[in-house]
Design a protein around this nucleic acid. Structure first.
Lengths: 335, 335
DNA sequence: CACAGCAACTAGAACGTTCTAGGATGCCAG
DNA sequence: CTGGCATCCTAGAACGTTCTAGTTGCTGTG
């Protein structure tokens, strides 16, 4: 029905209000340089006509877009929590977010490509599988902040959780409960996996439990945890730290099916504090990432780069925190 | 480091290649009207200089944006699955998607407002809490397609799953297993709740089980299902259809904690076929929505409106399908 | 009364594209 | 040699803003 209707522009409002286009622009932006009476009249006319500013034209002219591109993966629940934080942080810094999703049929390259065309001023990307070199080539065009992953290159900012510290917290917690035989289920090739594994090993050694170090291959999925549990069953430890919550869920399921009580016979610690871990019947002790801090620092780095401030080190590491729930307790036999 | 660098424009490429701006534009768009030799040379120069088209300028000039705005909620896992489908469908129709998220601290109105400024040509929104009247006021500016909700107004397109049919499928499945005392846990005020409840009641009556109709108050959350389970425990039915998977998960947990075996003592059917329902230790029988069909039809409706085609009825209803997993079986006592 | 200073406004260029209208050039038929 | 017609290319005006550099008109001061 509104096919032929032309959109309302500044010129329409100006004509109707009997002032110049420039004047309407001033009023719309809330810039100084217009009288109170005119201001009111123009605003009234604008709402009457249903004027909507055209951000494209606005940004085209003003050179800057004040737009931050975000690449996230629709499959990753954690990414969605992070989006919430990013919107807040970006808004506070006076920037807008433009989202580009990675889906099973839409790769990271496509997602980034769209953002580049949108003329955003920096790109924030979550995890992903891009090689450092590829990141660097994007970073040669505009500032890039990578979250929840590392990057060798010095030209990419990195903001992530302190995976090693998270593993330390998990091990410390278990040791303080009296555990000694603590195993770790690995995350395979996923970002952060190596750090979490190394953190586990380091913490074990620090507690003088080097001889009990036991790393079981795993991955990021539920079935990876399930497979790891099958392996562990031959000679169950009294506690396990798992790469992430989803894998821990699969592990829990298999352990319980084989008659082991959690935490009576074996304690389990996940990682990420996802909504999954909060479900009543899972109620998983886990390591929580500080989402708001991660988001705030990521935006901060992006804005610093954009505005050319001499920023500090390129890597920002946020300490996680232990979230104790019901899957951890004292080991079956004291000592 | 790249603070002062101006971006590469058509003019730069034109100067370098020794042709006019218009000619470069022709080449870049792949439009007819340029010789093969020139075409190659221009493309070569463009990649050398790292030219990136500016979609803002392009769209500003050409009047159309070929942009479809999508409003989704970061908290809703189902929305993410839907995004995947929408990207595919939009791409196939020659449109781009621009996303605007609703978060706990960013309302629907803000999300829609951003899209309007982006000059997208239609808006697709998922569920949400907007009143029909408010939708209609947006629809007076540009085509609006609402998914997973209804809308009284004739000026809004609606694409959703057939909630009543889904409930029928759940009840039919349970009846075919031999169940007669089948209860329903309601979804409260959430979109689709009334339809799913009515569908349950209708299906029960159709099977001559009107006297067994039992609707327990609930909601969309895990704790709603848990509360409903507590109520049911006083006089447990042999089967329950639950508003959604999350609520069913809460219900399952409480039932099992009280010693009821699922499906031995009681069968449970969820709704939505979320990733939660697919977890090995939940493995919930549920009703799956046909995501790709929903997405394809939504884009189809949006594009039809934009291009002014005389479209059919404003409501598109997609049949769901039953997904049988391990939470349903024969009732404890035959008959 | 002249003029500085200020507030309120305006004209017109600019942003990076696309698009319309046309200008060269070359080729072929008459 | 002329006219017609492709083919390839170009000039310049749009698109809807913002921004710079004014211009106007009023007030107050010496």
């Amino acid at each position: 029905m509104r096919a032929g209707e032309r959109r309302i522009t500044l010129a329409d409002v100006a004509a109707e209000a009997g002032v110049s286009v420039a004047c309407v622009s001033i009023v719309m932006r809330g810039a100084p340089g217009a009288g109170e009476a005119t201001r009111e009249r123009v605003l009234k006319v604008a709402t009457e006509l249903g004027y909507q500013p055209d951000s494209r034209a606005r940004l085209l002219r003003s050179g800057r877009s004040r737009l931050l591109g975000v690449v996230f993966d629709v499959r990753h629940p954690f990414h969605h929590d992070l989006l919430t934080g990013l919107y807040d942080a970006a808004g506070a810094a006076g920037y807008q977010l433009t989202l580009s999703a990675v889906t099973p049929r839409r790769g990271e390259r496509t997602a980034v490509g769209d953002l580049l065309q949108d003329r955003c001023e920096a790109i924030v990307l979550f995890g992903g599988t891009m090689r450092s070199a590829e990141l660097a080539s994007i970073a040669s065009r505009l500032p890039v902040v990578a979250m929840m992953r590392s990057a060798r290159r010095r030209d990419v900012d990195v903001v992530h959780n302190d995976d090693a510290l998270g593993s330390h917290q998990a091990v410390d917690h278990l040791v303080s409960l009296g555990h000694r035989r603590i195993a770790h289920v690995d995350g395979g090739t996923v970002h952060g996996s190596a750090e979490r594994r190394a953190g586990y090993q380091e913490a074990m050694r620090r507690h003088g439990l080097g001889e009990h170090i036991r790393v079981v291959p795993g991955g990021a999925g539920e079935e990876d945890g399930a497979r790891a549990a099958e392996r562990l069953l031959a000679d169950p430890p009294t506690a396990v730290t798992v790469f992430n919550d989803l894998s821990a869920t699969g592990l829990l399921d298999v352990l319980r099916h084989h008659g082991l009580r959690v935490p009576g016979d074996i304690s389990v610690v996940g990682y990420d504090d996802t909504s999954l871990s909060r479900l009543a019947h899972i109620d998983l002790t886990t390591i929580g990432q500080d989402i708001d801090a991660l988001a705030a620092r990521a935006i901060e780095r992006a804005v610093e780069r954009i505005e050319g401030a001499p920023s500090g080190p390129r890597a920002v590491v946020i300490p996680p925190r232990l979230v104790v729930r019901s899957t951890t307790g004292a080991p079956p036999t004291a000592g």
